[in-house]
Nucleic acid binder design. Structure first.
Lengths: 211, 211
DNA sequence: ACCGTATGGAAGTGAAGATCGGCATCGCGA
DNA sequence: TCGCGATGCCGATCTTCACTTCCATACGGT
């Protein structure tokens, strides 16, 4: 005969106060979204990872989308803060350049990999997500281009495009650096920093003889 | 009384030979995927855009994924070809740098916007897609880093990271240039080219006085 | 001991990918 | 010109899957 299963059989964590539970759910959700992306992640998975059942999720968030947006907000804000802080670290143009690059590498190197959500979201088709991520890169680009305009004489549209280039370079190279995993962070920042500051032409070149 | 609807009532395109139909379906699929991304696009939408019914789609492609992969293959190949061609355009290190940047801008500027599928795919959680796009960037980075190693004395891992940075810079700035839409292509390439070649430090700087 | 709140098992709902059987059209040979 | 097999095509349906919700149950403070 099948014996009755009581609640005590299921491994169940302690009852948590609302705010702690919410924080824990966000953490679980992040972990799942980072692993599998938005679409491939189910509310079931998230609940399971958090050690609770699905209804609990819905008592804290109206739906899957809002749960995701909460994470997007959190991490875009963190990134923008990081970049702005880096830009205020030094008065020297070159130091600032290196520092802002390091900001992206630091962000990408974080243990919980929030960059997957900011840089590799698979939910860009939704306006709410697109706008938030757009806002974040906009904020980074604005901050950087403002400093560029102070330090050089480039007109605004040009400064903006340059800033976009720097952001893209940092972001993409940081991600590939992490994937690769063989280069120490400081060295990687030095390499990309030198590229950003001196350009390819500034790497000790072995000049080809003119014809 | 309701009159009988015959096939002639429904706006129906002419019957097409198999290969032409397939090409047309690919075109329709691309148009839809580019507009809405993979997940938000339905087979229904694609069939409708092509002016056929769903079963026709399945007579040409085993499923939605394969349809998408066909497009990914097509466009990644095109991008790699474009970059490799650019690298063979000139023997001058600087010219090559500019040319490879222009390759990305050209790719992004294409009318049918294939870059949405290569650079902004929302299906990276699927291994088959990740591998193909990974292969494409790998190929670009390889080609560029090989040239960098010929022109400079950078060791291989460094050259690879630098190449990654250049690719990221080109790709991201090209996309934002397109979004912005106010800067002529040639000027944008000049700006990013100068950044890549000279670095931020090489832009006519208004130096801050040392303390 | 009791009541409100937190929690889980299980069922509802809807969207979208995939399929089935039949109809129309085309090319070809008598 | 007519018949006929082959091919292209469609309406309607099936099936699966994941978000969401309902109701009974267990816990914890008073």
């Amino acid at each position: 005969m099948a014996r009755e299963f009581t609640a005590a059989d299921t491994t169940r964590g302690p009852r948590l106060p609302r705010l702690e539970r919410r924080a824990q759910l966000l953490e679980a959700a992040q972990s799942v979204f980072v692993d599998k992306g938005y679409h491939a992640s189910g509310m079931e998975d998230i609940a399971e990872r958090a050690g609770v059942s699905k209804p609990v999720l819905y008592q804290h968030f109206p739906g899957k989308l809002e749960l995701y947006l909460a994470l997007v907000d959190k991490h875009t804000a963190a990134l923008v803060e990081l970049v702005e802080a880096a830009l205020n670290e030094s008065d020297d143009h070159k130091d600032r350049t290196y520092a802002s690059i390091r900001a992206f590498f630091d962000f990408v190197a974080r243990e919980d990999e929030p960059f997957r959500i900011v840089f590799e979201s698979d939910l860009n088709e939704v306006a709410a997500v697109r706008e938030r991520i757009g806002w974040a890169t906009e904020a980074c680009v604005d901050a950087i281009s403002r400093r560029i305009m102070l330090d050089t004489e480039l007109p605004q549209p040009v400064a903006r495009l340059v800033a976009q280039g720097l952001v893209g370079m940092s972001q993409v190279s940081a991600r590939s650096w992490l994937r690769d995993g063989t280069i120490p962070l400081d060295l990687a920042v030095e390499i990309i920093g030198r590229l950003a500051w001196r350009g390819v032409g500034g790497q000790r070149a072995r000049f080809v003889a003119p014809a």
